[in-house]
Design a protein around this nucleic acid. Structure first.
Length: 113
DNA sequence: CCTATGACTCATC
DNA sequence: GGATGAGCCATAG
């Protein structure tokens, strides 16, 4: 495909698109997969091109969803059954990285292997 | 080529 | 536990 530039953007989008439902990846985690630390890069890419990928499966290192999209992401998490953690606050909800954390090549439960 | 920009992350106060 | 600052890195203009 000559229409597909092999830039970070395409690679990140492809990886995010490979994240199975019920799983999530952190910005830094995705960047680490490419051997880069462009955590902000992933965020930039999602903001500009993430419209065509399950961006809600991409969260921050603390388990919080992308700022400005918490409600939107929460709806998807509940719909896909993503392991969420109930916080003690009103807007306090976060993703259980220990259970939802996903990585390419593992495709299976983190405790299965 | 150089500057500005972020849906981030970590360390420190 | 919340707030602040500095580091980070590829893309767009």
């Amino acid at each position: 495909m000559t229409h597909t530039p092999d830039t970070f953007v395409t690679r990140v989008l492809d990886l995010v698109d490979d994240i199975p439902p019920g799983r999530v990846m952190t910005y830094g985690g995705i960047a680490a997969v490419f051997g880069s630390r462009g955590a902000r890069l992933v965020g930039q890419i999602m903001a500009r091109y993430g419209a065509d990928v399950p961006w809600w499966r991409v969260i921050r290192a603390g388990g919080h969803p992308p700022i400005g999209h918490e409600e939107r992401a929460l709806a998807h998490y509940r719909d896909e059954g993503t392991p969420l953690t109930v916080a003690t606050g009103p807007a306090g909800y976060r993703i259980d990285l220990s259970a939802a954390g996903w990585s390419p090549g593992r495709g299976r439960s983190p405790d299965s292997e």
